[in-house]
């Protein structure tokens, strides 16, 4: 999951970003409105956390432009102004939720996860596909009753595929949503991650939860099984 954090206070931004990275997000960050506006419109963002009290273009301006550009990823606003008028303004401009400063870090995390799930149509914090279960709150993965140990990147790939279950995800898209903008990338690594995931989730190769569509990408089935021939038109 790729998150964008726009917050002008350096300390607070660092805190939020550190926490998000620990939780497995690829994080792009900035303290400037202009730059934030650019990132928000040009990067493949999954969720944006935007402070309303920014110098330059305000948070509201950025939200309005993002929505005007037709981008519909979830936006969480951070506001110090606890007045309802400010909150309502942000929500009306196109934000999906707000967190009032000072906030509990866990609360911020919970809100971000909830927004991400909601945006992909999941109602529960537990993502399920067949017998594969991803607990997004605790970042734990189970196959049946058995807990599976994943590295941070493996977890990111699985979570992304789970959230987009049934969709074909290209290797480029996976790379973009898993790595930060300035990270060194190698799309071959994705293949390695997927191979490792397959061996961990389906050691005996019976269920084949992650399907490879040659030249197009990967698809994780909604029910965790891919017995039927690949159906490219499924969404």
């Amino acid at each position: 999951m790729r998150a964008l954090v726009i917050e002008d206070d350096v300390d607070l931004r660092e805190q939020i970003c550190t926490r998000l990275r620990q939780e497995g997000y690829a994080v792009d960050e900035t303290g400037e409105g202009e730059e934030g506006m650019f990132y928000a419109k040009e990067y493949p963002i999954d969720i944006a956390i935007i402070d309303l009290g920014l110098p330059g273009p305000t948070g509201l301006d950025i939200i309005a432009e993002v929505r005007e550009a037709g981008l519909d990823y979830p936006i969480l606003i951070l506001t110090a102004r606890s007045r309802w008028q400010d909150k309502v303004e942000g929500l009306e401009a196109g934000a999906d939720d707000y967190v009032v400063k000072p906030f509990q870090p866990e609360e911020l995390s919970a809100r971000i996860q909830a927004l991400l799930r909601r945006s992909r149509g999941w109602a529960q914090p537990r993502l399920e596909s067949g017998d594969i279960i991803v607990d997004t709150t605790r970042q734990e993965v189970f196959v049946g009753d058995q807990s599976i140990d994943l590295t941070a990147y493996e977890y990111r790939v699985l979570e992304y595929l789970m959230l987009h279950a049934g969709e074909v995800i290209s290797k480029t898209a996976l790379t973009e949503h898993i790595y930060e903008e300035n990270a060194e990338r190698d799309s071959n690594v994705i293949e390695v991650f997927v191979r490792r995931l397959r061996s961990k989730l389906d050691p005996d190769g019976t269920r084949k939860p992650i399907e490879t569509l040659r030249g197009r990408g990967y698809r994780l089935s909604r029910d965790g099984r891919n017995r039927r021939p690949a159906d490219a038109s499924s969404s």
Partner: peptide, 9 residues
């Protein structure tokens, strides 16, 4: 409140 948020973190 921004500094308070930092302290809260």
């Amino acid at each position: 409140k921004t500094p308070m948020a930092v302290l809260r973190g």
